[in-house]
C-alpha cells in the first residue's frame, strides 16, 4: 500500500514527483475537498460521483445533494474528506495486481472437461 493519503481523483502529482511524498490536497477559501458517493437506488452500492468543497461534513452533504442529485440520481449520499482516503500506489500497479494473472483456475470458465453437463 502506498502511504500517500490522497483524494480519489484529487491528487496526482505524487506519481510525477515521487520523492516529494504526500502533498496537501487543494482547498478552496479554507474549505476542504470532499469526495461524494451516491447510492442510486436501494439494493445498489454507493458509487463515486465526484467531489466538492465544503466547510464541514454537514454542509458537504447538503452541497452534494444540490450538486449531484438534482434529478433523483440518488437515495443516499456519503461524503468523505479527500485527505482521509488512502489509495494503492499507481506506480506499483503491475506488482499490486499481478498475482491474479495466470490464475485463471479461479474462474469457472477454466474448467472445460465438464462442458455440456447440465446445471453445472
Amino acid at each position: 500500500m502506498s502511504s500517500a493519503v490522497i483524494g480519489q481523483d484529487s491528487q496526482n502529482h505524487q506519481s510525477n514527483q515521487p520523492s516529494q511524498g504526500a502533498q496537501k490536497p487543494p482547498t478552496s477559501a479554507g474549505w476542504p475537498l470532499w469526495e461524494v458517493f451516491v447510492r442510486s437506488s436501494r439494493g445498489l452500492s454507493h458509487v463515486h460521483a465526484g467531489s466538492l468543497h465544503a466547510p464541514d461534513a454537514e454542509m458537504a452533504v447538503r452541497n452534494a445533494r444540490d450538486l449531484y442529485t438534482r434529478r433523483n440520481e440518488g437515495v443516499s449520499l456519503w461524503v468523505v474528506r479527500s485527505t482521509d482516503i488512502t489509495t494503492s500506489d499507481p506506480d506499483a500497479k503491475d506488482m499490486m495486481f499481478e498475482s491474479p494473472q495466470g490464475k485463471d483456475y479461479r474462474h469457472a470458465t477454466y474448467y472445460k472437461e465438464s462442458e455440456g453437463v447440465k446445471h453445472l
Binding site: 481523483d9 484529487s10 502529482h13 475537498l33 465526484g50
Partner: peptide, 9 residues
C-alpha cells in the same frame, strides 16, 4: 472539480 485533479486548486 475535474480540473483540480490536474493539480491546480
Amino acid at each position: 472539480s475535474a480540473t483540480e485533479t490536474l493539480g491546480t486548486d
